[in-house]
């Protein structure tokens, strides 16, 4: 069983609001200096899903990510959890790629890896929440896809998936190879063991360039982006508190009513 898991490095979603900043001019998030990026929690669940299959059936798990050398940390995290190999695809030509381009790059990387039975992704990245990449990868590879899985099992060379719906779940059975995106309902990603962390620390992680995965330059980078970010702002909330006083309940409720009426009219 050859499993490939696509993972992404994101800003720590547990950041307190005060540490979250954007550069309004350049429409960019400013990462807080010194706080390391983390593995997208949905992707960690995809690793977990892969590990569960490996625990039961054996096999090999390769994690793959796009980014510079700093993404090594999240690859090591997945290795520490129990993945077997890690791989980084890195090139300046990929900068400012949108989800479609990212899907293309991953698909090229996966093609170069060559052998795979199952590809797992998170249902979306917890930073931009687009949830597109998995589908694009499947499209480029021409394999079936089920999104938002809460359970993934390999039975007799096929994969059984439970897909989360608003009021329950649907069950699918697919031929391999297939791509599944994993949802939070899958449960909890395991914590790496001590020995897992130690072994992962000294593991070689190859870095492939755009050329090595035979990138078509017209499909990546800013120029190839199909969507464009117009404006990035942090919404501000304001809370005001006003005490309404009066002689008796009648007066207070009358005042309250007229206050509410006033606001209705104005806003």
């Amino acid at each position: 069983m050859e499993i490939i898991v696509c993972i992404k490095q994101i800003l720590d979603p547990d950041l307190p609001p005060a540490k979250f900043m954007v550069d309004k001019e350049r429409n960019k998030v400013i990462p807080p200096e010194g706080i390391p990026f983390v593995i997208n929690p949905y992707d960690a669940l995809a690793v977990e899903a892969a590990l569960k299959i490996k625990d039961e059936k054996g096999g090999k798990i390769t994690v793959i990510t796009i980014g510079d050398k700093s993404t090594e940390d999240i690859v090591r995290k997945a290795l520490a959890m129990g993945a077997d190999e890690g791989l980084i695809i890195s090139d300046t030509i990929f900068e400012e790629s949108d989800s479609f381009a990212v899907g293309y790059i991953l698909a090229q990387g996966i093609k170069k890896i060559g052998r795979y039975d199952l590809i797992l992704c998170g249902r979306q990245a917890a930073d931009w929440d687009n949830g597109v990449v998995g589908s694009v990868v499947a499209e480029y590879l021409g394999i079936p896809i089920v999104t938002r899985a809460k359970d993934v099992k390999v039975v007799n060379g096929r994969v059984n998936v439970e897909r989360v719906t608003t009021d329950g779940f649907e069950t699918f059975e697919l031929e391999l190879p297939a791509l599944i995106t994993v949802s939070s309902e899958l449960g909890q990603a395991r914590l790496p063991s001590g020995w897992g962390i130690i072994k992962a620390a000294s593991k070689e992680i190859p870095i492939w360039s755009g050329k090595e995965i035979e990138t078509d330059i017209s499909k990546v980078g800013k120029k190839a982006s199909r969507n464009q970010l117009m404006r990035l702002i942090i919404p501000s909330y304001e809370r005001r508190c006003e005490f309404i006083t009066g002689e008796d309940l009648h007066e207070i409720s009358a005042k309250l009513t007229s206050k509410l009426m006033e606001r209705r009219i104005h806003e």
Partner: peptide
């Protein structure tokens, strides 16, 4: 405390 990052 709300300024600090906690992974509770």
């Amino acid at each position: 405390l709300a300024l600090n990052k906690f992974d509770v």
